[in-house]
């Protein structure tokens, strides 16, 4: 693993402005830098606490279960990593991403994601990624405490704790190579991500990032020097197209072991 890159990827934070929808004029928004590798549902309680203390000089109890987030009238899938949501929804010209906190009239498709649910979903993602990479051998050989530690490191934003557990999941060797690359492509405007079984090598040739995009979204990337219509962003940066998939999987994956790539239209 490339420690320098991984450390940078882990440490990056994004600025988010929370507005309480339907509040009085006095209510000031809440600003916060949140880590890309974290999840929104872990931070919502703090935001709600702030709002409950400052809402017009009166203590207002906000039901955490009732609260939900939306941006631009679109309910947010809070079980995506913050970095993914940020890259997906932030307006191109804005520095800060503004999120509305709603406390009523939750749309039926937007489920409340509590901390426990988040943990299970996270572990599910990790297992899935490992099945793709190692056919689940590594995750199955890990102890239950190590699973708990992995989630704990993510939820408490503890790099050293994560580094200790995640290393074996990220590793591959010539004798035990990755079987497939866990990569998900999010296209703006589509309800869900695209995911395919993409091997790291094809006919002994090492596949690069553009190969993966070709397979996932052949319509979005221009072939034979044709200019691509979209940028393919991961962790807020357009990933160089010649990056090998193995390197991508090792260093640019989120703690849930997936490489989340967002395709945004150029311009």
């Amino acid at each position: 693993m490339d420690y320098e890159v991984y450390r940078k990827v882990w440490e990056s934070h994004v600025p988010i402005e929370f507005n309480l929808d339907g509040a009085s004029e006095n209510q000031t928004p809440y600003y916060s830098m949140l880590p890309r590798a974290s999840y929104l549902c872990l931070h919502i309680p703090k935001v709600l606490r702030y709002f409950s203390q400052t809402s017009g000089g009166e203590l207002v109890e906000i039901d955490a279960e009732a609260a939900w987030l939306e941006y631009n009238s679109v309910p947010l899938k809070t079980y995506y990593p913050i970095g993914v949501l940020f890259d997906m929804h932030k307006p191109k010209n804005a520095q800060v991403w503004t999120v509305n906190v709603r406390t009523s009239s939750r749309p039926p498709e937007c489920h409340n994601v509590s901390k426990d649910v988040m943990e299970r979903m996270f572990m599910q993602a990790v297992k899935e990624a490992d099945y793709l990479k190692h056919k689940g051998e590594v995750i199955n050989s890990m102890k239950a405490e190590q699973h708990v530690q992995l989630w704990k490191a993510v939820s408490q934003y503890n790099f050293d704790g994560l580094w200790a557990v995640i290393k074996p999941l990220m590793e591959c060797s010539p004798t035990a190579p990755f079987f497939h690359i866990p990569i998900r492509l999010y296209v703006v405007g589509e309800p869900s991500f695209r995911q395919k079984a993409i091997p790291p090598y094809d006919d002994g040739k090492q596949l690069v990032f553009s190969d993966a995009i070709l397979r996932l979204a052949p319509n979005l990337i221009g072939q034979n020097d044709v200019e691509a219509s979209h940028d393919f962003v991961c962790h807020g940066i357009p990933v160089p197209l010649n990056t090998p998939l193995v390197y991508l999987a090792k260093n640019l994956s989120y703690p849930d072991n997936f490489v989340h790539v967002i395709a945004t239209p150029k311009g």
């Binding site: 890159v5 940078k8 990056s12 830098m33 520095q95 940066i237 390197y247 640019l252």
Partner: peptide, 16 residues
């Protein structure tokens, strides 16, 4: 690509 990625990450952080 590695240097490119590092550079891009650097630029992104500077932006923020």
């Amino acid at each position: 690509y590695r240097m490119e990625i590092l550079r891009l990450l650097e630029v992104r952080d500077q932006k923020h």
